[in-house]
Design a protein around this nucleic acid. Structure first.
Lengths: 190, 190
DNA sequence: CGCTAGCTTGATCGAAGTCAATCACCGTGG
DNA sequence: CCACGGTGATTGACTTCGATCAAGCTAGCG
C-alpha cells in the first residue's frame, strides 16, 4: 500500500493503479466517495480547493502537470473542456449509482456491488459489457472496502465468506479474487 | 404535490420550487440522488439517456428549451460550457457530501443534515453562510425525505420528534419547520 | 523464529427496520 | 353540517441486520 495523502496542487492522469477519494467527519468516520481507475483524470479544475482527499490505493503511476498549464490549455482548446465535462458527468453518474448502493442495499448486496465494480473497471482495455468472468487482485484493503461501502471490516469479511461459500466468488488469497460467473455476481447486486 | 415523472427530452432551468432526482432498484427500493433548487440546471448534456428520474417535489416553475438548441448554443458559446462544467462539479461535490451522509452518519445526523441542507438551499437569494435562523415549508413528503436519507418514514418521523423535543427545531405543522438556531442544528450533523 | 498488520470468526448488543394501530387533516358527498 | 374515506404522519411493540467487542488466525518480514 502506498497510501500517501497529499493535497493535489497539480493535475494528474491515472496511468496505472487505483486512486481513492475520500471524505471524513471530524470524529474520524470516513467515507470513500470515489475510485479513479486508469485512465481517469484527477484534480479539480477552477476550484479553490477540493473537499476530498486523494490517496493512492495501490501502486499507482500518474502523469502529472501543473494546475496553471491545464487551465490555460483548456481555455485554448474547447475539445478538452468537452472531454472534461464528459468525465465529470461520468463521475456524477457513478457517484449517484453509489448513493443508491449506500442508501438502499444490504451489506451483502453492497459487497457484491463492489466486486462487480472492480471486475468491470480494473482493466481499462476491456469493455465492461462483454466480461463474463474475471480474476484480479483487489486494489484496496478490507478497511478501504468497508469505508467505501459504509460498513465495518468485520461485515465485509463476513459477506465475502458468505459469497465464497455460496460459490459466487473464489478467494485465492486475501487479495486475489476470481469471479467465475459475472452474471451471477451481478444478480447479487440488488 | 405535482409528482409527475417524465423523461427529460428537453433541458430546463428550475425557476422556482424543488425537483428531485432519483434512482430505483428492480424490487422498488428507491434512493433520491439529488435535489435541484432554483436556479439549478436540469438535464444531461450530450447523453444517450439519463439513468435518473426527475420528478417535481413541490410546485415547480421551469424554463424549458429543446435539447438541440442548447447543444448548439454550447458549441458556439464557450462561456456557457464553462458554466455547465461548474454546475456539474458542484453537483458532484454535493453528491459526494451526501455519500458521506448516507454511508457514515446515524439516522438523527441524517435528518439534521437534511434539514440543514433545505434551510441553506431553499432561498436562492441568500448566502448560506450568513443564515442564522430559518423557517420554511418542507418541499417534500416524509417518504421523500426517507428515500433521500436511506431510511424509513418511521425513522424519519421519530428523529424529527426527537429533534423537536430537544428544542433543535420547531414543527409548526407537518410541513412547516422553524430552525431557531442553525448553528445548533449544524452541530447535530456529525 | 517472533512480531506486526491485515483478516477472519464468534458472541453480544443496539440502532433502525418491520408490522400494526392510531391520529390528524381534508376534501367529498349524503 | 357531519359522516365517510383517504392520505400522510406519528407512535408503539417487536425483530433483525450490522456494529461492537474480543479472540484467534495467517502471511510477510526483520
Amino acid at each position: 500500500m502506498i497510501g500517501e495523502t497529499e493535497p493535489i496542487s497539480t493535475y494528474a492522469n491515472v496511468m496505472r493503479g487505483v486512486v481513492k477519494l475520500s471524505k471524513m467527519l471530524e470524529d474520524g468516520r470516513q467515507q470513500v466517495v470515489g475510485l479513479q481507475f486508469a485512465p481517469d483524470f484527477l484534480g479539480r479544475p477552477f476550484a479553490e480547493e477540493s473537499a476530498v482527499t486523494a490517496e493512492a490505493a495501490s501502486a499507482v503511476d500518474t502523469c502529472n502537470f501543473p494546475k496553471l498549464a491545464l487551465e490555460t490549455l483548456i481555455t485554448q482548446n474547447p475539445g478538452l473542456e468537452r472531454r472534461l465535462l464528459q468525465q465529470t458527468l461520468k463521475e456524477l453518474d457513478e457517484a449517484r449509482d453509489w448513493m443508491l448502493t449506500l442508501g438502499r442495499k444490504t451489506a451483502s448486496e453492497k459487497v457484491a456491488s463492489f466486486l462487480y465494480l472492480i471486475a468491470t473497471h480494473l482493466d481499462p482495455t476491456r469493455n465492461p459489457a462483454d466480461i463474463v468472468s474475471a480474476e484480479f487482485t483487489l486494489p484496496v484493503t478490507r478497511a478501504d472496502i468497508a469505508d467505501f461501502l459504509g460498513l465495518t471490516i468485520e461485515t465485509v469479511s463476513r459477506q465475502l465468506t458468505k459469497l465464497r461459500s455460496e460459490k459466487v466468488i473464489e478467494v485465492i488469497t486475501n487479495r486475489q479474487v476470481s469471479i467465475p460467473d459475472l452474471k451471477k455476481l451481478h444478480h447479487r447486486c440488488g
